[in-house]
Structure formats: structure tokens, C-alpha cells
Write a protein that binds this DNA or RNA. Structure first.
Lengths: 230, 230
DNA sequence: GGAATAGTGTCTTTCAGACACTATCTG
DNA sequence: CAGATAGTGTCTGAAAGACACTATTCC
């Protein structure tokens, strides 16, 4: 590295943090995985929310700034952003030299509905289905974020870090059926009921009242037991 | 994002790319995983090689620049750098606001021995064993790089992307014994001979001459068959 | 023959996948 | 009762772990 004197003279890139924000709508009844996109006018089109890092800010601070200013999220929860990849094509922003640190994070639907932006559906491979494209290099960010999310839910899940709904899309307590529907929404595929239950059971605590399991009230069929994360 | 006019006025961070460069010494006889560290005087101590991104450079270009200028590697091979994590503590460099994009990459020993720097041994958890510490936040970079490397060799290996010596530390052709010793050096643990061979066999092509398998000449014992990656 | 290393055969355990069955609710 | 959903029992097949055995070389 060059000394302090020479360090200041080189041009520096603007560093942006772009966010793929996931949520699962209706997690308790018919879960639906969505990503938050926003309309912008400057070059008109849909984008992921993001911001440039302000002076001596950290990524965490920049993420909090995006959530507050751009998404209008109340400063309650601040989830952990996950670094996905970086985009460094010098021509990716035609206004200036800018690099982007693409992150993803997950929020429960209750905190995101009604805020600024649209919770967009997307294809199994991450593309927006209704012909809308994302500006810049934001489409591959959604793909990368989706792959990371699915790996954490169903791949690493089995071998490394098995956890029921690690991003807490679903509020406690929940039934095994609800948990499975959420996992199915995330991975975009059907999961076998019995195998899924067998894998999850050891990671859950049944909700007890006076030593008896508490049951969910349901419109039809045998009531299901309620669980918390173990 | 702000418009073009306001975009230039904000202070920008210097963006460094720091590299954990792995190699396996003696891959064919007694493999030994090492990481390249370099001595520097400015604040005196050992560091990972790295450089700030020059104007409108990409990460790949910056990595190539580090390898050529700091490691004095001839411009032959340019391996793929793997983004590990980023370090954004505003106080991490007391000279200026600087963030670091920590990457790791792997090189065959033949290309690295004799170049600038020392190929340091390290503990199972990534610390340098002889009491030497790394400056700045370079020690956690080695830890993160080691975890990533081991996952790719022995975890993902089994379930996702099974590959014999994916980073090509070992030159072809090789025996199953040599391949296993390299994997053991990387993961830092003994692997069962028969299970390892059974897993690897389907991913290898035996080296044939006139339809017969070519055997390695060995000092003692039954000669082993030679293989290439499949 | 004996030491050393390469390579095979096989038993056991674990676990995912799949299917069938039983249990308990509502109307 | 029928219909619907929850939950259990069990068989099968694939693959890892572990162990024993055979094969081929050099001395």
C-alpha cells in the first residue's frame, strides 16, 4: 500500500450498497415469497433499493439508512445483511465510477407491507414474470440472492446448519404444516410432508399448557400441534 | 441514488483488495497447505498482499496488479479470486477511510515458490503458529479463507459440486494416494482411504497406454494407478 | 518370505424418499 | 356418518463409516 501522502491523490469509486429485500406474504395461510422493488424516474424503471456509503459509514449503517430513508421502515428491527457479490464493471453507472456491494436481507411481512415500493413476485430463476426488467445489474442480484436464500433454507439446512425458517418469516407459534408451506414458498418446490416433519421435529419445542400440547384451531380436520423454535 | 451533480461531492472510500493466496507445497509427496504473507515496514509487520483499486479498475484487474507488482508472479495464469467478506470499520486504516474486499485464490506451488513473500504455515483455525500476528484485520481474512477452502474441498464437495482437488494444487497425472494426501492437507484431518477412493473414482479417468492402466513408479509397495480429472 | 503399499469386498448404520395406515376434528 | 387434515409406522435404497481381506511390488 502507498504511504499516507500518496494515498489521497488517487480517484476513488463511489461505493453503493444495493439490497434484495425478501419477505413472505401471508406466511400463516398461503405463503408467497416476494422481493421489494422500487420505481425511480431518473432513468425510469424498477430498481432494488440502495444508497451510496456516506463518509466513514459502515455497510450496516448504510443498510439502516436505506431501510429508513428509502423503504420508510420504522427503526425497529435491523436484520443482518448478507454480502452476496460485488459488481465492479467501470461502465455500470454512466454518471461516475461506482461499484456496488450487493446484499440481501429478510424481513417479516408485517414490517414491510405498506411501505414504499412494490413486493414483486418472480420466476423460479429470479426474473420478474410480468415482462418488467430491473435496471442496471439488479436482475442478477435477485438471482444470486434467491440462490443464497434457498441454499440456506434447504441445502445447508440438511448438512450444516439445519434450522426451521431461519429468517423468521413465520411468527411463533406455528404448526408443522405452516412451517412446511413457508419452506416450500422459499425453495419453490413441494416438500414431502412426513420427511419434512421428521427433519424439523427435533429442532422444535411443542407449545405446552398444563403439560398438554396446545393445538391450533382450524376450519377443517384434526387440529395441529403448535411449536416454537427449539 | 442522488443525481449526477450531487454524486461527486461526497467523500469516497479508498477500496483495497486484500488476498489470501493459498498453495500446497510438495503436493506429490508430502503436501503442506501454506498462505502467502509479506513483510512491510511502514507500520512494521506481516500482511497479506493487497492494493487499492486504481481508477476504473475491476477487482480482477486489481488482483492481477497485486500478483504482478507485489508478488512478482509472471503474467501467466490468472486464477479466479473468490470474494470472502468485506471489512468496513472506518478506523481500520488510521491514514484514511478505507474499506477492504477480502478475496482468496489458489495457485500451484510451482508458480509461487521463490516469489516475494513467505509461504507461512498456520494453525487449524488460521492463526500463524510461531507467535507472529498479522497486521490490521488480516488474521480473520485467513480464517475466513480457510473455512471457504475447506468447505469447497470436503463439504460442498459431497453434496453439491463434488470435484477432485478443484483448485488444482496437484498436477496431473496423480495417484489416489497423492490426491487424498492433498485433500487431507487442505481440510487438516485424516480421511479414510477406502471411502475417499470410492467417492473419487467416478470423477477420475484412469491414464491408459495401449488399453492398459499406467502405473506410478514407487520406492516400495505395489505400484498405484495414475489418473486424470474426469 | 516379509514388509509395504494398492486395491476390493462387505457389513453396518444412517437417513432420505415413499407409501400406507391410524387419529381427531367439523358438519 | 363422510370429508379433511394431522400424525405415525415401516419398507426401501443410497451412501458413508469401518473393517477385513487380497494383490503386487521391492528387499
Amino acid at each position: 500500500m502507498p504511504g499516507a501522502s500518496s494515498l489521497e491523490i488517487y480517484p476513488r469509486p463511489a461505493v453503493a450498497v444495493d439490497l434484495a429485500i425478501f419477505t413472505v406474504l401471508d406466511p400463516a395461510s398461503s405463503p408467497d415469497l416476494r422481493v421489494l422493488i422500487q420505481w425511480r424516474d431518473d432513468p425510469p424503471g424498477w430498481v432494488l433499493p440502495g444508497a451510496f456509503m456516506r463518509e466513514r459509514a459502515t455497510v450496516a449503517e448504510t443498510v439502516a439508512d436505506v431501510l429508513r430513508r428509502k423503504v420508510t421502515l420504522p427503526a425497529t428491527s435491523t436484520p443482518e445483511p448478507r454480502l452476496l457479490r460485488m459488481f465492479d464493471d467501470p461502465e455500470r453507472d454512466d454518471r461516475t465510477w461506482a461499484i456496488s456491494l450487493a446484499h440481501s436481507l429478510s424481513l417479516p411481512a408485517a414490517e414491510v407491507v405498506g411501505l414504499r415500493g412494490e413486493l414483486a413476485r418472480f420466476d423460479p430463476d429470479g426474473a420478474l414474470p410480468d415482462g418488467r426488467g430491473l435496471l442496471f445489474d439488479h436482475a442478477p442480484i435477485v438471482s444470486a440472492a434467491l440462490i443464497e436464500l434457498r441454499e440456506r433454507y434447504e441445502i445447508r439446512q440438511r448438512f450444516v446448519d439445519l434450522a426451521p425458517d431461519p429468517d423468521r418469516f413465520l411468527a411463533e407459534p406455528f404448526t408443522l404444516h405452516q412451517l412446511r408451506r413457508v419452506h416450500e414458498a422459499v425453495v419453490g418446490a413441494a416438500l414431502h410432508k412426513d420427511n419434512f416433519n421428521r427433519r424439523m421435529k427435533p429442532l422444535l419445542r411443542p407449545l405446552l399448557r398444563r403439560g398438554e400440547p396446545v393445538l391450533a384451531s382450524q376450519p377443517r380436520g384434526r387440529p395441529a400441534a403448535l411449536y416454537r423454535r427449539g
